[in-house]
């Protein structure tokens, strides 16, 4: 089977590698790039744990082949914290018990990030819809919803202060 050259930007850094056509982007990110923040749960698009941004759009990395990401810019959960400091969204998860085991958290954070980039002041219903494609087996979702609503408040406060 032929190998494909893949050249992409990951969290602002260039990366070049090679992969078989069948290699999933989720596995490429974890095994080749070495970033294990992106979690692989169900491998068929049901759980949402592997969600990343490709060119700013949230996608299931387990339903995308690495070769398709050639020439794109990818952001994973590792891109959220800057200079060792948690992002306001991450802080809100920390403060509101938005995670227990943490397996679903990377996907929850990316989907919440996508929502908050587009909608600065979401309602609880909008938050619930935004994470409806992500499974969490610990929290019962309630604290995740509270975390995302709290993050929206934090970001509004920061925007007003600026």
């Amino acid at each position: 089977m032929s190998m494909h050259s893949i050249s992409l930007t990951i969290n602002g850094k260039k990366f070049e590698g090679q992969a078989e056509a069948r290699k999933l982007l989720s596995d490429f990110i974890r095994e080749d790039i070495g970033l294990t923040g992106t979690h692989v749960g169900c491998e068929h698009g049901m759980c949402g744990a592997c969600t990343v941004f490709i060119d700013g759009v949230g996608v299931r990395s387990c339903l995308t082949f690495a070769v398709q990401a050639d020439g794109t810019s990818i952001e994973t959960v590792e891109s959220l914290a800057k200079d060792g400091k948690l992002s306001p969204l991450q802080e809100a998860f920390w403060e509101n018990h938005g995670l227990q085991c943490g397996f679903c958290t990377p996907g929850m954070l990316i989907c919440a990030e996508e929502l908050l980039r587009e909608n600065k002041n979401p309602t609880e219903q909008e938050v619930r819809l935004a994470i409806s494609g992500n499974l969490c087996r610990c929290t019962g979702y309630h604290h995740i919803v509270l975390s995302i609503l709290a993050a929206a408040k934090k970001l509004q406060g920061a925007a007003q202060a600026a």
């Binding site: 698009g45 949230g58 996608v59 299931r60 935004a130 494609g133």
Partner: peptide, 9 residues
């Protein structure tokens, strides 16, 4: 249809 991230693709 599915969820936002499914509809994105």
């Amino acid at each position: 249809i599915g969820h936002v991230q499914i509809r994105n693709r």
